[in-house]
């Protein structure tokens, strides 16, 4: 059983539903109509382009090209994370990129090799979507956590100095800020995990069922996707924070100017 195709006319008919959000965004003068139209336009172009180059990635199915694709995803995800958090590239690019790269490789290959037992872990059919979903989730959680962490240290520096001044190591003094970052970043994921299947049917599972898999297979993949995305997000964040601490504090333990707007001020 394959997935039923949607012809372009039907796709256009489906897009008519966007009229509902656009109408209410316009009626309540939210100022978001233009952004929504641009967002929808970008989505259409980007997804058609992705469809095109995924077609070729699957056609070539070459380990080197697939891995090069992962490196490109790491570079784009790191750049996106830093531009969304307004953190300085000079200080944070290397820690963020290494966090993404190391954790996606460790977790991705663990899943492909140890759980799926693939003979060829570079097989594009599995390699590209698994690394893609890991990267997307890491990006989201890193953006929230890095922003919370650095903003917390900047706003509550008195607490940081108090802990250092009373005998804390650098890591002990930063622990409350790391804790806040983890809570803010992972709480939505944990809450989502707890109601999965009850409140909403998750995307991977729906995709697999639409693609013809049995619900039994789909739920197993869904569980594993949650496990690998949470693990990779946590690992990437810990790598990123431990590497970035070395670069973002001066020799006296003071936080350097890490946000881009501080330079403007």
């Amino acid at each position: 059983m394959g997935t039923m195709d949607i012809d372009y006319l039907s796709l256009a008919v489906g897009f008519l539903l966007m009229g509902i959000p656009l109408f209410y965004l316009w009626k309540f003068k939210t100022g978001l109509v233009k952004a929504t139209l641009i967002g929808a336009g970008r989505m259409i172009v980007q997804l058609f382009l992705i469809g095109l180059y995924l077609k070729y990635l699957f056609f070539w199915d070459n380990p080197f090209i697939n891995f090069a694709w992962v490196l490109i995803m790491v570079a784009v995800a790191s750049e996106t994370a830093l531009s969304r958090t307004h953190l300085k590239r000079r200080l944070l690019m290397m820690p963020v990129a290494l966090g993404f790269l190391i954790s996606s490789i460790l977790i991705g290959f663990y899943f492909l090799g140890m759980v799926l037992h693939l003979n060829n872990v570079f097989s594009a059919q599995y390699f590209i979507p698994i690394f893609g979903i890991i990267m997307g989730n890491m990006l989201g959680s890193n953006v929230i956590a890095l922003n919370t962490f650095y903003d917390g240290v900047r706003r509550e520096r008195q607490l940081y100095y108090y802990l250092l001044g009373n005998g804390a190591t650098r890591l002990e003094a930063l622990a409350p800020f790391i804790r806040n970052a983890l809570v803010k970043s992972f709480s939505p994921t944990i809450a989502n995990m707890a109601v999965m299947g009850l409140v909403a049917l998750p995307g991977t599972m729906i995709g697999q069922i639409l693609g013809g898999s049995s619900p039994n297979v789909a739920i197993k993949y869904q569980m594993m996707i949650i496990v690998i995305t949470v693990s990779a997000s946590m690992l990437s964040l810990m790598i990123c924070i431990s590497l970035s601490i070395r670069r973002s504090f001066d020799a006296y333990g003071n936080l350097k100017s890490v946000f881009m707007e501080e330079k403007i001020k």
Binding site: Q158, L159, Y162, L164, G165, N166, G167, T169, Y252, G253
Partner: peptide, 15 residues
């Protein structure tokens, strides 16, 4: 500094 601070206590003005 980190080693020497282990023998110090610090109370900031407002915290």
């Amino acid at each position: 500094a980190e080693t020497l601070r282990k023998d110090m206590a610090y109370v900031p003005q407002e915290l």
